[in-house]
Design a protein around this nucleic acid. Sequence first.
DNA 1: GTAGGGTTAG
Length: 513
Amino acid sequence: MISLKSSFLLLHKRIGQARYMFDEIPHGGDLLSLNSLLSLHVRRNDPHSAWDLFHKRHHEHSNFDSYTFTPILKACAALSDIKRGQQVHGLVIKTGIDSETITKTAILDMYSKCGYFYDSLLVFEEMKLKDIVTWNAMISSFLRQGLAKEALGYFLEMQREGIEFNGFTLCSVLKACAFLSSSMQGKQIHALVIVIGYNSIVFETALVDFYSDSGLIGEAVKVFWNLNCSKDDAIYNSLISGCVKNRKYKEAFSILSEMKKPNVIALTSVLVACSENSNLLKGKQIHCMAILFGFDSDTQLSNAILDMYAKCGDILNARSVFDRIAHRNVVSWTSIIDAYGTQGLGDEALELFEKMEENCSVSPNDVTFLSVLSACGHSGLVEKGRKCFVLMKEKYGIDPGPEHYACYIDLLGRASLIEEVWSLYDGISKNSSKLTGAVWAALLNACRVSLDVVRGEFAAKRLFELEPEKPGNYVLLSNFYAAIGREDRKEELRILMRQKGLIKEAGSSWITV
DNA sequence: GTAGGGTTAG
């Protein structure tokens, strides 16, 4: 009777109803129906319900099998909840079924998706029977960790072990190629797939991504138009995002207009195009579309709309979008703080930062502090900037990166606090990884403001050792020479720039009036 | 159990 009921549950994919009936079954139903319902929740992208159900049954001392563990591990991965994931891992060991390849692969994948790369590798290394899915999951784990070289190494290793690769593997390999800028290898994968006649929309999307990320947008477009199956949202989105990344804004808009119905992701991507060339009119049109299609409750899209208004200088609309976001995340807060900061409205930026701190559900991150520091710099709020720099380390445990130092040096430099600048330098000079071009540039600029000739020349020397070809640095140095009255040096620099072909063309703007 | 599409700085 019960199993008949559980089959019925499976046939009926109406979760609410299924759950209701499940609760009515004496003793909570059998294992088969529990497992089915767990899978159903996970497939429906509802990991919370999956966990609630699992948790309830765990308290009732139910027995589980591998068909319980695989979906619940997937739910933990989706929630990125390592605590729950570890709990399940422990239970798997306790239950004594952890010898199975499928369950262990699910554990590996859970660790990876929760950001515990090393644990995923540990699980992998301890597995005796690895199949193609195990290898694929491990290769993905390397990529998630940014270890593209290792991902390719394991790809070769799996072939040495006699495991055939499949489409999943090739998608990961393409990602690794893009990451390593090895477009030759990626093209070889493309050729290989044409030869073996593998046809998959997911792989084609990975190809579009690969070509876009390799700067070969023309190839990405070719893949898109040569597709011999029907196009889905993801491949449209991938090409739109690729066009924007490659600054092909017109093309991005034209692909968007090809879509029967836009989606949140497509609109988010295309808004970046509006921000980057300050196309307020187009940006407003996209904002209208977002409202029209009922996407305006999406936080990520709203953040992009907010930022578009900010980048186009329309701070009032940026603020009104911010005020309407129901679930603001760290990006929402950072974007609005930055919007005020770049407009020179430092007090407003700081006021919002304080509000953010009062709002306990969202914590500032490293980017937030960059925006706050830069806002202080733009408005000459030295004391507030000092406080923030300390706050970042002491309250939030964020170790200042080179970008933060550059920003902070810039803030102090603008205020002519040159000795404070150099004592900050003394503090970080032991750690050469913190002395990036941006830091030397900020030091040089501070010396220009304070006419610190000797140390300025020292900073310039270091800057040009690190970044000899960056045109902006020549402008910086030229301004330094002008400030200290060395017009002769300035002229030498102009000649050098011309020799190097670094003279910029006359200023042009994409700004739409 | 493994693969594809989005937002903040510089």
